[in-house]
Design a protein around this nucleic acid. Structure first.
Lengths: 178, 178
DNA sequence: CATTGGTAAGTGATTAATTACTCATTATAA
DNA sequence: TTATAATGAGTAATTAATCACTTACCAATG
């Protein structure tokens, strides 16, 4: 991976996340990355190919982080870890979340290939395990609700970072006595 | 409001919601509405003006529906009504929700003027009232959580209508004994 | 040590298509 | 008659993508 290729990916992620995929032109990306426009197409074939590369990059990082979380067997620890993971992933990969979420509304094809709900589904099984172990009367529905809580935490944090996120997570932890 | 003007609004809402604002061309809207492209600019000045008109239309309908809901003084009934309102609004105005939500990622200017969080804020006060009356130990945070639950219900329903929405709402009602 | 040949990285002018928008003109209805 | 509704050809700007070309690097060969 050359320096310029990496710079293109970096700038494109930032612009796609901030402005949206459709309204970000390849010429703008090239200018901002200090690169000729032609180079983008040399490396990524077309604009969609550039987007694909960005999404694949991001998904790799996140899958690795989640797999660590899934190994926890203690149910309460597992639930708490899921919440902490959400917070840290959000802080470190905010631009990427913004992009994947926005693609749901702009680019249905790629949104069906990889979007952040896929990651949520990976977590869902481990959540269900946890609620079964904790003897909840309706563990599946509880897991669904918990997943939705994490999901909406993501969405809210993406839209406005007013610092209330941590207190909101703590409130959930109290509610589930984690 | 002439027939053709209404048809433009109808078609534009559908296309903006399905494809996104940026990628939907005025020529496409005109063709699909069976109207000359010039007419769009006669009625709405520019593309942004067309979007403004659509959003204002939708917000009017929804504000009226919400105001009915806010008059309820019984706390449990108020909370239950909020959930039912979310379901019915979603079913009747799905395209509009899709649009407003997608604008958050594509059109920051208009998203700040009117977006669906404004409507959530209208509900928030009535939710806080309800949880105070119900003697919850932390009514503000509870109201926030409840608002988030409604919020995420919207977002999930927009993305995939797999019929699980009603059962999810019922689960919340049970959890809050509504 | 040169010199050659091959390859990938990178450029920038150019292209065809599409875009939002304009405007002179025509139809319609009160 | 007069204002408004509606048309559709036209325009300047922007777009994604292509193309012929240059540069940098590196290994093999004589």
């Amino acid at each position: 991976m050359t320096e310029k290729k990496e710079k293109i990916l970096e700038v494109a992620l930032e612009l796609f996340a901030r402005q949206g995929y459709a309204v970000t032109s390849t010429s703008r990306i090239a200018k901002e990355a200090g690169v000729s426009e032609g180079l983008i197409f040399k490396h990524f074939v077309n604009k969609q190919g550039l987007l694909d590369a960005i999404v694949q990059n991001g998904m790799g990082d996140i899958e690795r982080a989640i797999n660590v979380c899934l190994r926890e067997t203690n149910p309460k620890k597992s639930l708490a870890m899921s919440l902490d993971l959400a917070l840290s992933l959000m802080r470190e990969k905010k631009e990427f979340w913004q992009l994947t979420l926005s693609l749901k509304y702009q680019n249905p094809e790629i949104a069906n290939k990889y979007h952040h709900n896929d990651i949520m589904k990976m977590l869902q099984t481990s959540l269900e395990d946890a609620f079964v172990k904790l003897d909840y009367q309706n563990p599946l529905a509880e897991a669904q609700l918990f997943g939705v809580l994490i999901n909406s935490f993501f969405i809210q944090f993406i839209h406005e970072d007013n610092g209330q996120q941590e207190s909101f997570l703590n409130f959930i932890k109290e509610k589930y006595k984690l």
